[in-house]
């Protein structure tokens, strides 16, 4: 579904990604682990098309379509969704307004009719309930004054509403207590099916106790140096990353 070939990227002339290859098929959950500064979040941003990063080399394909040069919103409309590590606040714009605008942008792109307000509310309230959030959440300004847990739950609410093809979770587990972590994981598991895929970027095993990955990648200094299964996660948890550099 997503094919990344020899991806190189930099920010302010500093090379961060030094040749990433990644192949994600429908139904799969991939995990990328690595130290701080290894380039994990850069990869997530470059997949989403963040123009703060300079693309130096390589290409990204989505269902055989080259999306390397595609705009941020067109990538989103083609099914790429980024769960932000630090979702930004937009004061005065309600969750409901924002989410409905996002949803309608996707529906328009798919040639479908826009969702009416009642149906939208019904769907949203159901998801809110599953995430343990109050209906009044929809009236709040997006991410404005949200707690860490609320911010991540808001991202999962959007994920479940928009229902993309690829969900990239950029350190979604950071700053969450156990209960919030479980709720977020439940949301991601609900999203999963045989036609979509998940790419998890994380430092820790704890989220992976709830979302079982199929493939695990270890990243060092802008490169994927090892790919394997869940046993890699346990080894990293026990021994760290230095054994990979020997």
């Amino acid at each position: 579904m997503v094919k990344i070939k020899n991806l190189e990227a930099s920010i302010e002339d500093k090379k961060i990604l030094k040749g990433i290859d990644l192949d994600i098929n429908p139904g799969e959950v991939h995990v990328i682990m690595g130290r701080n500064g290894s380039g994990k979040s850069t990869l997530a941003n470059v997949i989403a098309g963040n123009e703060a990063y300079e693309l130096d080399n390589g290409s990204i394909f989505m269902n055989d379509e080259d999306i390397t040069e595609m705009s941020i919103e067109n990538r989103a409309l083609n099914g790429i969704f980024l769960c932000f590590q630090y979702p930004v606040a937009i004061p005065g714009v309600s969750m409901a307004y924002f989410l409905r605008a996002a949803l309608n942008a996707h529906l328009n792109h798919q040639g479908k009719e826009e969702i009416d307000a009642l149906e939208f509310l019904k769907n949203s309230k159901q998801i809110l309930g599953e995430l343990g959030l109050d209906d009044s959440f929809l009236k709040r300004s997006i991410n404005d004054g949200f707690s860490g847990g609320e911010k991540k739950k808001s991202e999962i609410l959007q994920l479940l509403s928009i229902n993309p093809k690829l969900a990239v979770l950029d350190e979604t587990d950071s700053g969450l207590d156990v209960d919030a972590l479980r709720t977020v994981a439940k949301g991601v598991n609900k999203f999963r099916n045989n036609n979509n895929a998940v790419l998890i970027i994380t430092h820790y095993q704890r989220l992976l106790d709830y979302i079982k990955p199929d493939i695990v990648h270890l990243m060092i200094d802008g490169k994927i140096v090892k790919t394997g299964d869940m046993s890699l996660v346990e080894k990293v948890e026990k021994d760290g990353y230095s054994w990979l550099e020997e």
Partner: peptide
């Protein structure tokens, strides 16, 4: 970037942010 990533076009994003 946040708005664009949700499929919202630049013009719509600007007017949404300013209206907010």
């Amino acid at each position: 970037f946040y708005c664009n990533q949700r499929g919202i076009k630049l013009d719509d994003a600007v007017s949404m942010i300013v209206n907010g």
